[in-house]
């Protein structure tokens, strides 16, 4: 059941996938210009491209329901034996998969380019897992807001929700970053220098998975109550 729902999301993601592939191409370009002296730039670029995906996940999550509603396609799907929460799980899975594929591709290019530039690449895959977890959580939060807000407001609300713990972690205490661990996970990626092996901390990842479940439940509760009023013409 979930598989089908997620299959449909993936189906719809093709155009955006092309976009993601383009970003990947950017990473490949970094490979072509493979000069040892550029290795810091390469790392910077890698991190940049990596962190984009979190923004994408918010975008995906925030606009998925809206697009389906706007295009009226949601009706044909929800008229089947699909419960609202199943539909929502399909979307969560879809967003996660979309970001997962992106991260996988990035992981491949990352370990290749950075490896070629002489960085120890053992941690690349761990960072990618962090990213996927961050995307899953961010996407779910965005999805939750989008059940009752329009995509712009939903994206804004999500950014706020994810941003506040980050600001608090900068100003109040570092552990605030773990309230909603998206920022913690992304900063893990951003701060990673690759020069030292570094410690592999699974705690925020687990926390992200857990919180995804919580937000999914909240989103399902809200979504099963909202009216799917499609545009009238």
């Amino acid at each position: 059941m979930l598989l089908i729902a997620f299959n449909f999301v993936r189906e719809q993601r093709w155009p955006i996938f092309v976009l993601l592939l383009w970003v990947l191409l950017l990473a490949f370009l970094g490979l072509v210009a493979d000069i040892p002296r550029m290795r810091e730039d390469l790392l910077f670029l890698f991190k940049q491209v990596a962190v984009y995906v979190v923004a994408f996940s918010i975008f995906f999550g925030g606009s998925a329901i809206y697009n389906e509603r706007k295009s009226r396609r949601i009706l044909a799907v929800l008229s089947k034996a699909v419960r609202r929460e199943q539909y929502l799980s399909g979307l969560v899975l879809g967003v996660t998969t979309a970001c997962g594929i992106y991260c996988f591709a990035l992981g491949l290019t990352g370990s290749w380019t950075l490896g070629a530039a002489g960085f120890p690449i053992s941690r690349v895959w761990f960072l990618m897992v962090c990213l996927v977890a961050a995307c899953m959580l961010a996407g779910t939060v965005a999805l939750m807001f989008s059940t009752f807000l329009n995509p712009f407001l939903a994206a804004g609300a999500t950014a706020l929700m994810l941003g506040v713990p980050w600001i608090a972690s900068q100003t109040v205490a570092a552990r605030w970053a773990y309230v909603i661990p998206v920022s913690a996970l992304t900063t893990t990626v951003l701060n990673s220098t690759f020069n030292v092996p570094g410690n592999t901390e699974w705690f925020p990842v687990c926390l992200a998975v857990l919180e995804t479940a919580v937000f999914w439940v909240i989103a399902a509760k809200i979504f099963s109550r909202v009216d799917i009023a499609v545009a009238v013409e």
Binding site: F8, Q12, R72, R73, L75, A76, S79, K80, A81, E233
Partner: peptide, 18 residues
Amino acid sequence: DAWTRRHVGFLAENVALY
């Protein structure tokens, strides 16, 4: 009830499909 919809066919006005 989702399970009942298994036995229902629905065509929306101005249908939109993937």
